[in-house]
Design a protein around this nucleic acid. Structure first.
Length: 883
DNA sequence: CTACTCACG
DNA sequence: ACGTACGTGAGTAGG
């Protein structure tokens, strides 16, 4: 059975454009609409398997509709340039897909589509029509299914006449009557003012068409009658404008639209140009792959037991290598093998891991552990952890390609060897997913393929080093790399390998108590609801609360009612069940994430958890923590805070010591902005929120009440986040106007902060990026977007990133310095955790006094600012007590 | 695999 | 007018 898929090209392109963030490739070309279009095409090809295909475009600015109504599509914002520049790309893309495209001067895509669907109706052929425009519903028939995009772009809703009847109670041909009555602001079609969808539907259900509605206007009364009589002509014209013309003089021979599949070669080169990396990695361009590695041929030797003795010598004093770690969590990962570059002979040596670990491999193990043998590799941190668990220490890394690439663009989502090869113009290399498969299908290939792939990675790393080193220099991130991030990788590995002791028995006991409380709460919830249901399911919970119990629904999510804490707190006065659910949520979170989740991560042999700090994830330069995440252990509510009691020292008689920066972000802001008032506040070491309240409200310290301080605190948070009146109003539950006036008062006092905020946004617009105190960079391509939301987001990010990122720079500096200090002074104390503005140590009793002194000192002196940095320290038998 | 919710700074 | 506070990770549901 033939099946023709028709795409309304302009409509889908603009849908994609507005649905996706404004992506751009490295040469500044915007690609989001092309990307959305591509995913739509791929989905349709896979799911619909069309035998025929066509994309129709509008052509020219003036169509016959303008002749009838000059205002047609007037008032519509003109297409933003970021979108128009993508149309040629889409057309090129369609060529690579080998999908026929069609446009005709003086006609819109609608008319072309209308004509083709008429032919389909007449000849009984099946058509799927994809558009973002509901007007298309008028073309629906038994032959023609109309798919309208819903939120996002790849999700569509399909309509045949039956669905239209069900949803609107109308025949497809009545869709034009609907629009005739209600109009369409986006096309500047007037309709009848005051008649919206509801009224229009009511009228049509009664009278059937615009003509009949007008004919019966006399029977109506009041305002409605007046409006209809007054705008009868508009309604008729609107209907006419909405009617799709179905007699375009064009070739309607089905054979013209035959679809035979895409040109893999052309498509993969198109994706390369557009930098659609995930698609490149995901798709099978059968035939397109051959060229990827053929460019470079490598001289590879797979080392055997007999050959390994000479290898250590051949490695020399410095070389590139790749250590392949298999698994997400490097604390329990296998190592597949190691590939080395041998400068002498310009060749590669692959050592299987079993051989490396055997007695014969000892010289190579020693080479890896030799600080004086310099190594360039990809992801020192991960390799160091994985090797350490197998008893091999990795030392002497003097360049890490991953870390360098992260600094060069911390928002880069595909930091992989193949991705870097691509990005930096090095010879192509197959993505890991291609070689290994992914998820459940992950398999190490046989030796020949494995050794080749890993040697190619080593080759890419070798070639990348000078390129990235130069880029770092250009960006003035040399010192940031060599003096901060690279040493930090080693410091982190040390902390993570050490791990932190967890009192598993205490955790279980806490779990039992929570389980008991949960049981009681669940019973009460079921009783109040009058039935049992899954409280964890927002869908079921929404049905119970808003349908069964009839509570007033406020917020909506994409898929239904919102039941988040903010909504529930507003509902609390209406029913006891709401409070019970909030209580349930709190305890269930503790139970699943912090009791059960944490217990799963405790090593039974040692009773410790070993988190993995990710150094190349966060766009601002912060660390993140996984397996388990130890950066979000509860503290705000007492029930959760108790979890901290199970984090204990690993040796008897030791203590947990924690030190945290006081207001580091606002101090950083004071320094960067050089705002006199803000600097003064910190130089006088005042409570910053109280001081802010005094200045903003113009009162004495003694007159600042708790409410004023709370507001001032929220404003300070807002300032750090990149303030907006809306955000502040949400946070303080006040009106936007009030929030705006708060902000205005704040800026009137802290004028230097206002200047900073204005300047940083200008700088970002001029340079395309912002930087931290240590020259860490973040690119903000969307700062010039014409879309208000995208641009505003980029502007707030421009304000926030230098602050959050500089604070991250500072604590990282403190960590490196602290690690050096502990070593230099021969202390037994160990650094265990970092939580953004806090460092946690375990300390033997005899070092307590010393550590209480030096930790805050090192933290405060990590970087000299124009305001003092301050760190507060405390200690106790558990993390809970070190508050 | 995505959406929702919620834990932290 | 537009409608979001900045940065993360994890667990559960449900397609």
């Amino acid at each position: 059975m033939d099946k023709l898929v028709i795409i309304d090209g302009n409509s889908i392109a603009s849908r994609a454009f507005y649905a996706l963030p404004l992506l751009s490739n490295s040469s500044g070309l915007h690609t989001n609409a092309v990307y959305g279009f591509t995913t739509m095409l791929l989905k349709l090809i896979e799911e619909e398997k069309p035998t025929h295909f066509l994309v129709a475009f509008d052509a020219g600015k003036v169509t016959f509709r303008h002749k009838e109504y000059t205002e047609y599509k007037g008032g519509r914002a003109k297409t933003p340039p970021e979108l128009s520049e993508q149309f040629p790309l889409i057309k090129e893309l369609l060529k690579a897909f080998q999908i026929p495209q069609f446009e005709l001067q003086g006609y819109e895509a609608d008319d072309i589509i209308g004509t083709l669907t008429r032919v389909a109706d007449e000849s009984g052929k099946q058509v799927l029509l994809v558009s973002g425009d509901k007007d298309m519903l008028q073309l629906s028939s038994d032959q023609v299914t109309v798919a309208i995009t819903r939120k996002g772009i790849t999700e569509v809703e399909r309509y045949n006449p039956a669905e239209i009847m069900e949803k609107y109670g109308l025949e497809p041909k009545q869709i034009v009557d609907l629009k005739g009555l209600m109009g369409d602001t986006s096309d500047n079609i007037p309709g009848i003012p005051g008649v919206g969808e509801k009224t229009a539907l009511k009228l049509l259900h009664e009278y059937g068409s615009v003509e009949e509605v007008l004919a019966h206007a006399a029977e109506m009364k009041g305002k409605m009658k007046e409006k209809i009589e007054e705008h009868a002509k508009d309604a008729m014209m609107s209907k006419e404008l909405a009617t799709i013309f179905r007699e375009v003089p064009m070739d309607t021979d089905w054979a013209t639209f035959r679809y035979e599949g895409y040109d893999g070669q052309a498509l993969s080169s198109m994706f390369r140009k557009l930098e659609f990396k995930t698609l490149l990695e995901k798709m099978d361009f059968s035939g397109g792959e051959a060229d990827i590695e053929s460019a470079v041929s490598l001289d590879i030797e797979v080392i055997s037991e007999a050959g390994i003795s000479g290898l250590a010598h051949a490695l020399g004093d410095s070389t590139s290598l790749h250590i392949e770690i298999v698994g997400e969590n490097p604390h329990h990962s296998e190592v597949a093998g190691v590939a080395f570059y041998l400068a002498d002979g310009d060749k590669y040596a692959y050592v299987p891991f079993e051989l490396l670990m055997s007695e014969a491999g000892q010289p190579i193990q020693d080479w890896l552990s030799d600080e004086s043998k310099k190594k360039q590799l990809f992801d020192q941190h991960r390799a160091e952890l994985a090797l350490a668990w197998h008893g091999v220490r990795l030392r002497g890394v003097d360049f890490d390609v991953l870390l360098a690439a992260y600094l060069l663009d911390p928002t880069e989502s595909t930091l992989t060897v193949s991705g870097l090869a691509f990005k930096y113009g090095l010879p192509g290399i197959r993505p890991d997913e291609d070689v290994f498969g992914k998820g459940a299908k992950f398999r190490l290939p046989e030796l020949a393929a494995l050794s080749e792939h890993l040697c190619r990675k080593a080759d890419t790393i070798r070639r990348a080093v000078p390129v990235l080193r130069e880029e770092l220099e250009k960006g003035e991130m040399h010192r940031l790399f060599y003096e901060l991030e690279l040493p930090l990788a080693g410091v982190l590995a040390e902390m993570e390998l050490r791990g932190i002791k967890v009192d598993a028995a205490g955790l279980r006991q806490l779990g039992d108590e929570i389980a008991g409380q949960l049981e009681g709460i669940m019973a009460r919830i079921y009783q109040l609801a009058g039935c049992e249901f899954n409280i964890n399911s927002p869908k079921q919970l929404g049905e119970i609360l808003f349908e069964k119990l009839g509570l007033p629904a406020s917020k909506k999510t994409k898929t239904g009612y919102s039941t988040d804490a903010e909504v529930l707190e507003r509902l609390a006065p209406y029913s006891e069940i709401v409070g019970q659910i909030l209580q349930y949520r709190q305890l269930a979170k503790l139970q699943s994430t912090y009791i059960e989740g944490l217990l799963k991560e405790v090593r039974p042999e040692t009773g410790k958890v070993h988190t993995y700090y990710r150094q190349t994830i966060a766009a601002t330069g912060r660390l993140s923590s996984q397996y388990p995440n130890l950066q979000n252990i509860p503290i705000r509510l007492e029930e959760g805070r108790k979890i901290r009691k199970v984090f204990v020292p690993s040796e008897p008689g030791w203590y947990i010591l924690a030190a945290d920066y006081s207001q580091i972000e606002l101090r950083v802001l004071a320094h960067i902005s050089q705002d006199e008032k803000l600097k003064e506040a910190f130089l006088q070491n005042m409570d910053i929120h109280t001081k802010t309240a005094m200045d903003v409200f113009g009162v004495q310290e003694s007159e600042v009440d708790s409410n004023m301080r709370r507001s001032a605190k929220a404003v300070n948070f807002g300032i750090v986040y990149g303030i907006s009146d809306y955000g502040l109003s949400q946070n303080l539950a006040i009106t936007r106007k009030e929030a705006a006036s708060f902000i205005e008062q704040y800026f009137a006092v802290f004028q230097g902060v206002r200047t900073y905020m204005d300047d940083i946004v200008k700088d970002a617009r001029r340079d395309g990026y912002v930087t931290t105190l240590l020259q860490r960079r973040r690119y903000l391509p969307e700062i010039t977007a014409s879309n208000f939301n995208l641009r505003s987001f980029a502007e707030r990010t421009a304000m926030n990133s230098p602050i959050q990122g500089s604070a991250a720079d500072i604590i990282k500096l403190a960590m490196v310095q602290m690690a050096e200090r502990l070593k230099a002074d021969g202390l037994k104390s160990r650094m265990l955790l970092q939580v953004h503005d806090e460092l946690v140590f375990e300390v033997p009793e005899e070092e307590l006094e010393l550590m209480k002194r030096i930790v805050p000192e090192v933290m405060a002196d990590a970087l000299k600012l124009d305001v003092p940095l301050q760190a507060d320290v405390d200690y106790g038998l558990t993390w809970y007590d070190a508050k």
